[in-house]
Each structure stands twice: as structure tokens, then as C-alpha cells.
Amino acid sequence: MDFTLKIWRQKNSGEKGKFVNYKVGNVSSDSSFLEMLDVLNEELILKNEEPVAFDHDCREGICGCCSLYINGRPHGPDELITVCQLHMRKFKDGDSIVIEPWRARPFPVIKDLIVDRTAFDKILMEGGFVSVNTGNAPDAHAVPVPKQNADLAFDAAACIGCGACVAACKNASAMLFVSAKVSQFALLPQGRVEAKERVRAMVAKMDELGFGSCSNTGACEAECPKGISLTNIARINREFIKAGSA
């Protein structure tokens, strides 16, 4: 398969970037999107040109590193996948593909398609944990957890922090990410102890870092590779009201 790629190139966070067009040919329809970019980069290196910088690590949809905005969609044209799980057969031969980095003030571009997502780590540092004394791990059945809550907490914990929600949101809001993190703890007895402080601190940090607010548009849920539900956003709103009125 042959493609024309329109890729955002930017030397560093200080310099202005621009789109550059590249042709890439002989791409297997079974190769992943990242493998297709590898092919392009090998060609660029052979031509003594600067390869395109993009984030990637596990290449099996778990790490959340690969963060490309492909043809107007985070992680490209497929549901419930990350870019590494996107196959070139999802495109038509001869397609023109626009590749951009996540666009959000708290996610500045480091180079080309790589953005700095430290903002998410900063939010997690505010409350994405349970403060417990160290010691032996307790037995799994020592603290009873309703099955339904365990399942919902697990669903929320499926968030890989890739930032597709922020990228997809018209307001660059991090509400789906933060709500997933707040939910996974709020639903479990161990997390309830610090639920109020957690939601207050994480929301305050999210605001401070410059993420937008939630318009209940639902673009985040539609583009999330892990299917994190909008019900988590309702839950964080609930938790926030509870924390604020106490």
C-alpha cells in the first residue's frame, strides 16, 4: 500500500512547527501504524534526514505512550484501540493521512509528535494512591467489596493515561482521566477513607495545570481506547459535591 503522510514537524517546544508531506510505499496492509512510521523513518535515516519523533513503548495497547492524532481522531480511525493496535488495512491504498500531536496547553510539544504528558503525573501525585502503612499484603477477602463496585473500579482502572480524552475534547478537558482515577478509589473501601481530600486535590491540580472544563459532549468516551465511561464523570461530580459540602 502507498500513502501520503502529512506530518507535524517541530524541532523543540520553543520553535514553531509545520506540516511536512512524505510519501511512503510498499507498506504491508498487516503492518501497524507505528510499523509504517518505522518504515518511513528508516527511509529518512538512509536519506540523511531527521526521522520523525513519536512516542511508543509496549506496542501492545497497554502503556498508553503512542499518542497520535490521525485524520482528526486520537489513535486514528478505529474503536477501542491505541495507535500501535491500528492496522494499515483500516486505510485505503493511496490515502492521504494527517498526523498531529495531541493539542492541549498542559501537553506542550517536546518534538514532532511527542508531547509532554507530565501534567497527568502531577494530577496523580495529588491523590492517585491510597495512604497505607507498609507491611504484609492483607488477604483478598479481609475487606469485603461488593462485586458490582469491584467491577466498576476495575473498569475505571483500565485507564492507561494516554491522554486521548484530552486530545479529543473540544475543551482539552482531562475530566475523563481524572474521573477514572478518582472513581477507581472512590468505589473501594480502601479508597473511601481519603475520598474527599483526593477529589479536591486532584481537581484543583487539574484546574491549575490549565485543562478545560467538561461540556458533557462525550467525545472523550467515544475516543477512549479503553472504553472509560462518562458515568465516571458523573461520579467525580458527585464526589466533588460531597467533598465540597462537608
Binding site: G72, R73, E100, R103, R105, G210, G212, S213, T217, A219
Partner: peptide
């Protein structure tokens, strides 16, 4: 105020956008 902050949150807009399956009128409040 909320709208201004939301606009500020994305200083560089995307070159290509795609109408995802979202609540249509929420984008035009």
C-alpha cells in the same frame, strides 16, 4: 468565563478534525 478558559486550554487547534459520535449541540452552546 468557562468558555474563555476552554478556548485557552487549546492554543493550537488541529489541522484536521473528525465529527466523532458526540452530542452535536453540546459543541455549539
Amino acid at each position: 468565563i468557562v468558555q474563555m478558559q476552554n478556548w485557552i486550554a487549546r492554543p493550537v487547534s488541529y489541522a484536521k478534525t473528525h465529527p466523532s459520535q458526540t452530542s452535536f449541540f453540546s459543541k455549539y452552546m
